[in-house]
Computed example of a mutant assay.
Amino acid sequence: MVVLPIRFERSPRLHAMLSETAYPAGTRVVVQGKRGPEVATVRGEGRDPQPQERYGAVLRAATPEDLTHWEDLHRAGEDLKWLLRARARQRGLPVKVVAVEFTLDESLVTVSYSADERIELTGLIGEVRAHTRARVNFAAVGPREQAQMIGTLGACGRENCSSTHLQDFAPVSIRMARDQQLPLNPEKLSGPCGRLLCCLQFEHTQYLDLLKDLPRKNARVCHEGSGACGKVTKLHPLAGTVDVATDQGLLQNVPAASLRRMTEAELKAQPDMGRGPRPAKPPRSTPS
């Protein structure tokens, strides 16, 4: 027995499947998935099974008849998808039908949909049952899963990461964009799905390592060469430099290694830059 990495059509995620035969990469096989028998593709070399792991099963290599039937089911699912989209518009339902997928034995049809609110699906279920005798399963998917299943182009001009290689949707936060010194523009930081770009996480750990050697933004520093002091206004982690607004009114880009933090004595000796003296508080009036 051997464990093979298997990929289904609408997701780049690899699933470990137990097989009696070590099929080479690229082989189309019939597997027993959670929904039933489906056609998938072997995407790598096999490995030995581990006793503590649970696996799906590779049933056999896909025959020409299997592949022809699978293509017919794919076309039937596409036709049913567009029909359900039309029926949803007629009924005024705020729902988008993302995909309709049959199992190879046609025992189950899964309708993946996206909706911003809870909706009544009874009418659409009846439409599906009017065209197939398979059991019907409606599955809600989020914006990232929708982009993964459909496939879109990212800002880089390539197919989005979620439908090409991402194995899991790791949490992405706006802090990652701040650490990478990116402009906090929602349009530039959001992917086709409308959520923060998944690729923000790829280099985040490297940026955190680079930021350890840089002073923080707004820190008061002095240049060891010229002796000029000022405030850090911007960080350039990849270049290892920072922009410093000096007390003389100049903006300089200097290597972070040539800077030192101002001492407490130097900070106390600095004038209160631009704020001026605080106004005296008016005396509190006492009730007569």
Rank of each mutant, 00 (worst) to 15 (best):
H223W: 08
C222L: 13
R178V: 14
P192R: 14
Q206G: 11
C199F: 01
R216D: 15
E187I: 06
D179N: 06
L182M: 05
Y207I: 03
R175W: 14
I174F: 04
R195I: 13
S190P: 09
L197H: 00
N218V: 06
R216Y: 11
S226H: 10
H165Y: 13
F169G: 12
S190K: 02
D179R: 04
K217I: 11
D209C: 11
E224T: 09
H204T: 04
K217R: 07
E187G: 10
C198G: 06
F169R: 11
I174A: 13
K231Y: 05
C199W: 00
L210F: 13
R195S: 07
A170N: 15
G191Q: 01
E187D: 02
T205Y: 04
E187F: 11
G227R: 12
T205W: 10
C198L: 15
G227S: 14
S226P: 11
A219C: 09
C199I: 04
C198S: 08
E187P: 10
Q180V: 15
A219H: 03
Q201W: 08
L182W: 03
Q167T: 13
H165F: 03
G225T: 04
F169M: 10
L166E: 03
S226T: 06
P215R: 03
D168A: 07
L208F: 05
R220I: 13
M176G: 02
C199N: 02
N218G: 09
D209Q: 14
S173C: 08
L197C: 04
L214W: 10
L197D: 00
L197F: 01
K188C: 14
P186C: 14
Q180C: 08
G191I: 01
D179G: 09
S173R: 08
Q180N: 14
L166F: 09
S226K: 12
N185C: 14
S226I: 13
V172R: 00
K231F: 11
E203I: 03
F202A: 10
S190N: 13
D209P: 02
P171I: 02
F202V: 07
L196K: 01
D209M: 15
A170I: 03
G225D: 10
A170M: 11
G230F: 00
